[in-house]
């Protein structure tokens, strides 16, 4: 397993170096949107109950979740085009483990860049980022949960190939999840929402209640399991149809 991680790390770094312009452009877009939010908040946000800090932290988390949700599908689409997806499928580790290693390493490499930028902007605006330590617990869980949902989209991509429009649609659908009823039981089942509520509390420096810790952990495990099962089902169906590389 350690060698799989090492090899995958080499791929992640190699791709990042050779697609450097794309990485820089993504960061610039990321920051421009953030600055527009800041401008909007300054112009229209007077008297709103939500603090700017809360909104800014939420934005960074939100963007990370969105990237995480669809990245696996984009990777699979690229691997199908490159013709290396078969090699992933004949790895004794299996595609789920190989791609999970890839996505987790992407997070390990990308998240410090994104959050480093956030801290930099906050310090330029003379704002301090003092979040409750539990913030990072929920951050890790929300990333894993979005990866779980990403497995489902990746499975759909394996079977139906060109799913670019679906991936865009999925990002909008995710927004809807945040407006779901605040009913405690319903919220437990809805992905992302409990994590976001808890992170919102933690970003103000307060500790979320224990219920949030439990709900987020159960929700994450549930969606990871559902995602892995769906990915395996779609993989099996694709192999049965003999359409693995037919992008």
């Amino acid at each position: 397993m350690i060698y799989l991680i090492r090899g995958t790390f080499i791929r992640v770094i190699g791709e990042m170096r050779r697609y450097l312009l794309n990485l820089i452009s993504s960061i610039i877009i990321f920051l421009i949107i953030f600055l527009l939010i800041a401008l909007g908040f300054k112009t229209f946000g007077q008297g709103q109950s939500l603090s700017f800090k809360n909104t800014a932290v939420g934005y960074f988390v939100w963007m990370s979740v969105m990237i995480n949700l669809t990245d696996l599908s984009w990777t699979i689409m690229n691997d199908m085009q490159r013709g290396i997806i078969e090699q992933v499928f004949i790895s004794p580790f299996g595609p789920l483990v190989v791609y999970t290693a890839y996505e987790l390493l992407m997070l390990v490499v990308e998240l410090p860049i994104v959050y480093g930028m956030m801290v930099l902007i906050f310090s330029m605006a003379n704002m301090s980022v003092h979040v409750h330590p539990s913030f990072f617990y929920f951050l890790v869980l929300v990333m894993l949960q979005s990866l779980g949902m990403g497995y489902v989209l990746a499975g759909v991509t394996l079977k139906y190939k060109k799913t670019q429009a679906l991936l865009n649609l999925a990002q909008f659908a995710l927004i809807g999840l945040l407006f779901v009823s605040t009913n405690k039981w319903l919220m437990t089942l809805v992905p992302i929402a409990p994590h976001f509520k808890a992170m919102s509390i933690a970003s103000e420096g307060a500790a979320p209640s224990w219920g949030y810790f439990l709900t987020a952990a159960i929700g994450t495990a549930l969606y990871m399991i559902i995602g892995a099962l769906m990915f395996s089902l779609f993989s099996k169906s694709t192999l049965k149809r003999g359409e693995l590389s037919m992008y």
Binding site: I2, Y3, G7, R82, I84, Q87
Partner: peptide, 30 residues
């Protein structure tokens, strides 16, 4: 192990050495 569909089994954006480390790792080699 296998090579399928001609030359499409390598990662074009990685060097020869990086390709070997990546695909080797995928087979549990290191």
């Amino acid at each position: 192990s296998a090579v399928l569909e001609g030359n499409r089994n390598v990662h074009w954006k990685l060097s020869v050495k990086e390709n070997m480390i990546y695909f080797g790792g995928m087979r549990g080699l290191g």
